[in-house]
């Protein structure tokens, strides 16, 4: 493992630790008495005391923090107050929807953004370019949840090709379950890919002006071959930067889109937990979301090193 990767790994772990501290402080220390909040202001003092005891809120904050951290490693996050089941069970059920949805959306985003972005750059200042740019400008302005609603309106309400929402579960019919994630993934991806397509286009245009592209052409490579063989990998460097930010948005977008399509994922879970004032579940799920964002950023960092040899050997 190179020093660069070790350094990124260290930054990754440090970020995880710091973010967990923020989440813990905001959702457990800042509110004061979580037990009181969960039961409401009218609750009997005895009941509050009992819940406090049950949740271990009488222990010092530092100890609770460490226990909570350890819980993330072991999977023992305690029981949900409202559901009376282990939190980890709730999460595992929901994550089986949220992660596939996010991955599908990311793959779609990359596929759409790269092809349209490169296409626009290759047709610079021609109708193909203008079309893509116009589409991107509109895509950026559209809220993803509205686009989701429009998809439902068209493909579910009008055409009846898809159901308007809900999730049949992976066990019964995986294909049906997959189908239920298509519209949500598309509504997440199309809007995200608009921004990425613009970045890809300008990155490719920048690269096409580079001297090494002229060198490649002087060697006898066609325009297309020079673009694919020499331009794309260099153009990916700025694209990957934006991709990292985009995917962080995309992950928080799953929270919204799950609500549009009534998908019982983490995003729905967190809203149910909020309405039931189940601070424990809120805290765990928020942390899980943050972990996903940080992990994505870490992977993007690694991708950087893979693309740009200058990073690998630079001391």
């Amino acid at each position: 493992m190179s020093a660069v990767i070790a350094q990124r790994l260290f930054a990754f772990l440090a970020t995880l630790l710091a973010t967990s501290l923020v989440v813990f402080l905001v959702l457990e220390v800042l509110p004061g008495d979580s037990a009181q909040i969960m039961l409401g202001v009218d609750a009997e003092p005895d009941a509050v005391a009992a819940l406090r005891e049950k949740l271990g809120l009488n222990r010092p904050a530092a100890e609770r923090y460490l226990t909570w951290l350890a819980g993330f490693m072991t999977g023992d996050l305690g029981d949900s107050y409202t559901y009376s089941v282990p939190v980890i069970e709730l999460i595992v059920d929901r994550i089986a929807i949220t992660i596939p949805l996010a991955v599908m959306a990311m793959v779609l985003t990359i596929a759409i953004a790269l092809t349209t972005g490169v296409f626009a750059a290759a047709h610079h200042n021609r109708p193909g370019d203008w079309g893509v740019m116009l589409g991107a400008q509109i895509g950026i302005a559209m809220p993803n949840f509205w686009f989701g609603i429009l998809l439902v309106l068209f493909f579910a309400v009008t055409l009846g090709w898809f159901s308007a929402g809900g999730f049949p579960g992976w066990e019964d019919d995986p294909l049906d379950a997959f189908k239920a994630l298509i519209l949500p993934a598309v509504s997440l991806a199309l809007v995200q890919s608009a921004i990425l397509a613009r970045v890809t286009r300008s990155a490719v245009l920048d690269v096409l002006r580079e001297d090494y592209i002229r060198t490649a052409r002087a060697k006898g490579l066609s325009k297309r071959a020079a673009l694919w063989g020499h331009g794309l990998r260099n153009a990916m460097i700025p694209v990957v930067t934006v991709m990292g930010l985009q995917f962080a948005f995309l992950l928080s977008g799953t929270i919204i889109i799950e609500n549009v399509f009534y998908l019982p994922g983490l995003g729905r879970l967190i809203f149910q937990a909020i309405s039931q004032r189940d601070l424990i579940v809120v805290k765990d799920v928020v942390m899980l979301m943050v972990i996903k964002v940080v992990v994505i950023n870490f992977l993007v960092d690694l991708l950087y090193v893979a693309i740009d040899p200058r990073l690998k050997t630079a001391t």
Partner: peptide, 23 residues
């Protein structure tokens, strides 16, 4: 394309930027 690099070749002013940094 068939002639370039085969029968007519060219070198440029900036060797720093004329080579592709990722290959």
């Amino acid at each position: 394309c068939a002639l370039r690099g085969d029968r007519i070749a060219m070198i440029f002013q900036e060797p720093m930027t004329s080579l592709n940094p990722v290959h």
